[in-house]
């Protein structure tokens, strides 16, 4: 299990960023704005990507 976790996820902080982004999108969908949720999801993914890249640079 640990091997698969490392290979498929491997990075706790990225996982947290992604889950928080998904949670925000889901809440916005529940509030009745599914298109806005799509844009927020994309924004969250881009921010996560920037964060993950800079962390790997350190």
């Amino acid at each position: 299990m640990k091997v698969l976790y490392n290979l498929l996820i491997g990075d706790h902080l990225t996982l947290i960023w992604v889950l928080v982004t998904a949670l925000i999108s889901w809440l916005v969908v529940r509030l009745g704005a599914p298109t806005l949720a799509a844009f927020l999801l994309l924004l969250g993914v881009v921010l996560t990507m920037i964060n993950t890249t800079y962390r790997k640079l350190r």
Partner: peptide, 17 residues
């Protein structure tokens, strides 16, 4: 989707660097 996203983000980070 979430698993693929996590996997993809690591690939992108490496590719960017």
């Amino acid at each position: 989707g979430l698993l693929l996203l996590l996997f993809g983000l690591r690939w992108v980070a490496k590719a960017v660097l």
